[in-house]
Amino acid sequence: MMTRLPVVLLLASCALCAADREFERIARAVESHYGVTRTHIPLMGVANLFVKVARPAGTSGFKLALFENLNAARGYGDMSDLEQLFDELSAGGLKPLVRVHSRHGGESTYICTGEVGKSTKMLIATFERNEATVVEVQVNIDTLMSTLAAPELASKTFGIQHQDRDRW
């Protein structure tokens, strides 16, 4: 019994580390693929303290990476290029649930999850004309279902529009 407990704890901590790695992996992939660096968001750590108040019900553990001036990046805006990037990223353990491309809005949204349970890590990557955001958030199943029902509204639901930088 005593030997099992450390194993369970180790597995649990590995799962948490793996989820963290996915966010970093995607953020770094965007950086290296488009040759940009993420925009520093002042007081993001402090913002996380208030995230339960500021975000929709059933969300916690909010991580955000913002990328600006992407229209100058080579290949940015090419849908097939973006698809290829996400196909490669999906091989790493994230399950891609929804991909939405809107030519009218010039926006592409990718929603992926890790292992689903009562709550799950959801990763939303939104690529707009000039900016991109990668968000990781812990959500409950109701929030996950409502996000799946209207994925095009995900960026608005989680308040990850570009102006977030100013809000924080």
Binding site: L97, E115, V116, D142, E152
Partner: peptide, 26 residues
């Protein structure tokens, strides 16, 4: 997809569907 104004892809596997079945209160 290149011509479309909007294109959507939804992929749900059995694990995901079972968990939806288990936890979806609605």
């Amino acid at each position: 997809a290149e011509k479309a104004e909007e294109s959507v892809v939804v992929t749900l596997d059995s694990n995901m569907l079972r968990l939806f079945a288990k936890f979806d209160n609605n």
